[in-house]
Amino acid sequence: MQFTSESVETLVEELAKLPTIGRKTAQRLTNHVLKMPRAEVEALASALVDVKDQVMQCSTCFVVTDQDPCPICSSHRRSRATICVVEESSDLLAIERTGDYNGLYHVLGGVISPLDGVGPDDLRIRELAQRIDPSFPDGPSGDGAPDAPSSDAAPDADASDTDAPEGDDAPEPVPVEEVILAVNPNVEGDTTAYYIAQLLEPFDVALTRIARGLPIGGDLEYADEATLARALEGRGAV
C-alpha cells in the first residue's frame, strides 16, 4: 500500500518489526499514535529509550535489572547453592511469582536452534558453567575455531568475579549443589537441556529438570493428549 507520509510509513514499519504485531496492527497503532496528545507520545518515546539506557543485564545471572548485581543475586536471604536455569527474564518472573523458590537464577537468553542461527555460544551457557567452576575456559566451547581469543582464557581472574562488589554486603560465595533446568518442554528446550547436562556432567552438581504434566486446577478431560501421555509416563506412587 502507498503511504502519503514518509514518517507514518516509517512508524508502521518499525512497529511491524515487533513480535506478534502484523502490518495491520501496526497501522492501527500508528493511527492511534497520530491521535494521541503530544505529551503522551513523548512519554511513550522516552519510556522506550529509557528501557534501553537504564536497564542492564545482571553480570551474574543475566536477568534484566536496574542494578548490577541484580536484587536476587545480591540478596542474603537466598540459597546460593541452587541455580534455576531459564530461557528468558520473563520465565524468571513467572517462577518468582510462585514465591516457592529461594535459590538463584541463570537466564540463558534463548535456546539452541540451528534454524534460527542460535548456537550454544550465542547463549549464556559458558557463563553458567563458570558459575559452577570459575576455571571453566572462556572462548567457543568445543568448536575449535581458530579465531577464539585464547590469550585471556587461562587465568582464573574471571571477569564476573572481579565485577562482584567486594564490600560487606556481598554474600559469601557458596559452591553450587544443584542446577534446576526450567527450560520449555519443546524440542529446542529439551535439546538445550541435554546440551547443558552433557556440559555440566564432569562437575559435582545435581542436575534436575522441572516436571511436566497436568496443570493444577485443570480437568483431565480437557488436557491435550501429549500432556496426558507425558503425565502418565511420569506417574508416581500415591
Binding site: P120, G142, Y194, Q198, L199
Partner: peptide, 18 residues
C-alpha cells in the same frame, strides 16, 4: 571439519528418542 560432537549429540539424542 564436521560439526563438533558437543553440538550434534543433543540433536542426535532428540532425533533418536522421538
Amino acid at each position: 571439519a564436521p560439526p563438533p560432537e558437543a553440538l550434534l549429540a543433543p540433536w542426535t539424542q532428540k532425533l533418536v528418542q522421538l
